[in-house]
Amino acid sequence: MTTATAEIAAPAARRWSAALRPAEWQLVLPLALAYAAFFLVPLVLLILVSFFDDEKITTMGGAQWTKFLGDRFTWKVIADTLKLGVFTVAATSLIGVPVALVYLGASARWQGVILFVVILPLLTSVVVRTFAWIVILGREGVINQTVLWLGLSPAPLRLLQTEHGLVIALTQIEMPLLLLPLLSVMSRMDPNLRDASSALGASKWRTLFRVTLPLSLPGLVAGCMLVFASSTTAFISQLVIGGNRLVYLPLLIWQQSLVVYNWPLASAAALTLLVSVGLGVAAIAAVGRRGHAWALR
């Protein structure tokens, strides 16, 4: 209190303070400049480099693009990458929404425990999480031991280096990205709405699909966007669990840029990844808007 009166009583200090008061745009400026210099310009450079024909970056032309997009293999890789993203989004949503509903119905103390469990994967490194899945999915891994013990299959299942295995692993790795936005929207929801729905005779399923989900849709859509963008670019997981058998766009970019040193082709591949992930994210946003309009009809 004494400091407060001292500062307020000093008109000279106040005049200085007023003179030095930054406008709001000046506060935004440092980050904007950093982003312009180290984010926007490099991305423009990426586009430029992709339009060079040779690896030494001397002659301009569209040869890399025709070579890259003229290859049927490229299109298969693009389709596989997008498919991986769609599968991971579907799996994380199918499992993440019930987890969020349990959180919603829990007492305050249990909500804290659940929140800790949800961010637990974030507290361990992506690399460690990927190795954990090797231990679980391998030929002598936890899943195969269980399957053989229960007699569900005569031989160990092949899970590593398959798309199923990769989607299972990514479901855990990306789950916090889905749940954090979903939980923050869900916990702001008015609980009376759900109570009213059941008091008026709606079944629990109907309450879920007509009240809870439509109201938490913005959080779900934001989570799905993050999961899609992250799983399609999860290079280490794709490489370690998918092995050399499953090829996704990040692996192509890595090979072309850091192994073959063909930067123009790598740039073309990187832009292709950027555009396809961007289109995928935009599609999720569009579906979300449609779903919202449909739910509120």
């Binding site: 180290f38 990426l46 993050l226 840029s257 930067w263 990187a270 950027l274 992930v277």
Partner: peptide, 24 residues
């Protein structure tokens, strides 16, 4: 628009940015 620009690294594939930064 500025906010979207600032948030875009979350949605854009980081790998593409990594390559761009290396070349830059």
């Amino acid at each position: 628009a500025v906010d979207t620009f600032f948030m875009s690294p979350m949605i854009l594939p980081m790998l593409a940015f990594g390559l761009a930064a290396l070349m830059y």
